[in-house]
Design a protein around this nucleic acid. Structure first.
Lengths: 204, 204
DNA sequence: ATTTGTTTTAAACGCTTGTTTAAAACAAAT
DNA sequence: ATTTGTTTTAAACAAGCGTTTAAAACAAAT
């Protein structure tokens, strides 16, 4: 016998799925209620409002993903290893939840304050240790001098953007979802090589 | 004396602005009408429905941007020049309309068929000539062997993604919009160098 | 067995949405 | 001056939205 799932969890579970698939605006409270097999008013009973439910879910979705990434960025690894691990871990997270990037970009586009409020920006995007590491290596001459912010944006772009245009990539190449995952898996090495080859000091 | 703007143009102009700023769902027909200073029903009179108005605007927005980009990709330029020109032109287009990427990604996320229908995917994303060029150069040994689709996604990611996370970049670095443009302008060279250094054949 | 507090329910509220209707205003042609 | 066709208007429509209310159902404690 399966233990009955608490109502609150059912709401979060169903609403998360719908928010990811259809976005905040296109997801109605009644839709959540129907799919979660609960009464409409229970959503307000447990979360006060649709907006607060949404914020709860944002926190859950992003908080979970960001912790392990932050760890890697601040870990005592040498630069190349760190970059490799970071790319690989990030991609694994997004493969597990391919809708996450579009979700975050939608929030960023219409409610940027929802992300800054939670210091989510800092989590997904904290590079202080990493920046220092880059500048130190540049000083030693093992890599070229780079603007850390620019480099970080580059890494992030290469990792995340393909997930945002997943449908277009699949459409153009007649990919199944499985093909897409393969395509993305290849990118772990490609992105790594691209970053490393760029960081190599000038060969004169 | 300024010539009176035709009603149809007023609707398109105002609706474009609102769709870009707030997205399809958060833009109401009444909001368009008020801001365009017209009667609510004129929108239906000229465009039949909100959805058809939206599709008209998608075509205008993307069609305009894609023509000059397609030209560059198919132009008889050598690889390095072509890449440089492409990056520069693309970035200029997006600086002129910084909301375009988020707009396209939103459509891609909720109505991918709206983009494929128009062969917009082909326009923004046509690489046949470019792909052949890459494979030819690889055969000659002037560049490393690459998967053209992967390389193209890389270029696109590096160009477009920062615009999608503009607010986050500005927030993290305390940038004004002007600072952001500067940050992006630097990227013309950075992206170019990153791609070229990656394409260099192995130095053994 | 009764009280107490929590959870669930059905129904309704007020508001906004996109769209339609039918009349009025207008411009051009006869 | 009158007809014709186009454009604009105010008003209404039905449907959907998030939320609230108040009663019912339930579980736990006395």
């Amino acid at each position: 016998m399966i233990a009955k799932q608490p109502t609150k969890d059912k709401i979060i579970h169903t609403a998360t799925r719908l928010f990811l698939e259809k976005g905040y605006d296109r997801t109605s409270v009644r839709d959540i209620a129907t799919k979660a097999k609960i009464n409409v008013s229970l959503m307000n009973y447990y979360f006060r409002s649709k907006e607060m439910l949404f914020e709860t879910i944002i926190d859950l979705l992003i908080g979970k993903a960001s912790i392990s990434l932050k760890e890697i960025l601040n870990a005592p690894l040498d630069l190349e290893q760190k970059i490799e691990k970071y790319i690989s871990r990030y991609i694994d997270i997004l493969i597990e939840n391919p809708l996450l990037i579009s979700f975050i970009l939608a929030v960023l586009s219409h409610n940027p304050e929802k992300l800054t409020r939670l210091k989510v920006a800092d989590h997904l995007y904290n590079t202080e240790v990493f920046s220092n590491q880059l500048m130190e290596e540049a000083r030693k001459g093992t890599i070229r001098e780079v603007n850390p912010e620019q480099l970080y944006v580059n890494i992030l772009s290469l990792i995340a953007f393909p997930f945002a245009i997943k449908d277009m990539i699949n459409y153009r190449n007649n990919y199944t979802n499985q093909d897409f995952v393969q395509f993305i898996q290849h990118r772990k090495r490609i992105i790594y090589e691209m970053i490393i080859s760029y960081l190599k000091p000038n060969q004169n």
